[in-house]
């Protein structure tokens, strides 16, 4: 890469601050995965449809494959690596485990990062709202039923409150 075209950015990811020199065209997903080695965020389509790369940008879910890393300079990102604390699963992760809401697990980080702000904003969501919230994340293994079940349990147990 040509150095004169690179731009320095500083980003907070899961509470840690990173400063890197990057090409403007670097996708946020590639930045997280290959520059910061946070490979929990997966990439499935690179055109903003599958949702596997969903992360939180200043607390809201976005698709990291259709944002340039340079754009988030000075902002804060949360990824799946930030959910579990001291090896204890986040309650939503635990419910995914209990309800068998994952098979190959490739799409799972994207689902989790979509659901964290969804439950925060919709702590009493019903099934229809849950399914609609999930519709921007594609899963090819589970057929969604157990994911929906896990989110319903999360609502019942007050994960979002």
């Amino acid at each position: 890469m040509h150095d004169e075209t690179k731009v320095q950015i500083t980003v907070s990811v899961n509470g840690e601050t990173y400063t890197r020199l990057i090409e403007p065209r670097l996708l946020l997903s590639d930045f997280l995965r290959h520059e910061l080695k946070l490979t929990g965020t997966n990439v499935g389509c690179e055109h903003g449809v599958c949702g596997a790369c969903t992360v939180l940008l200043d607390g809201e879910s976005v698709r990291s494959c259709i944002i340039f890393a340079v754009q988030v300079d000075g902002q804060s990102i949360e990824t799946v690596e930030g959910l579990a604390k001291n090896d204890t699963l986040h309650p939503l992760q635990e419910l995914f485990h209990q309800e068998h809401a994952l098979q190959c697990g490739f799409c799972t980080p994207g689902f989790l990062m979509t659901l964290v702000p969804f439950l925060r904003d919709n702590p009493t969501a019903d099934e229809a709202a849950i399914r609609q919230a999930l519709s921007g994340n594609l899963c090819r293994c589970t057929g969604y039923a157990n994911i929906v079940a896990a989110v319903k349990k999360a609502v019942e147990s007050g994960v979002g409150r």
Partner: peptide, 12 residues
Amino acid sequence: MPNIAHVQIRNR
């Protein structure tokens, strides 16, 4: 508004 794509797209 809710018909526009998905929440992750609407957030951005």
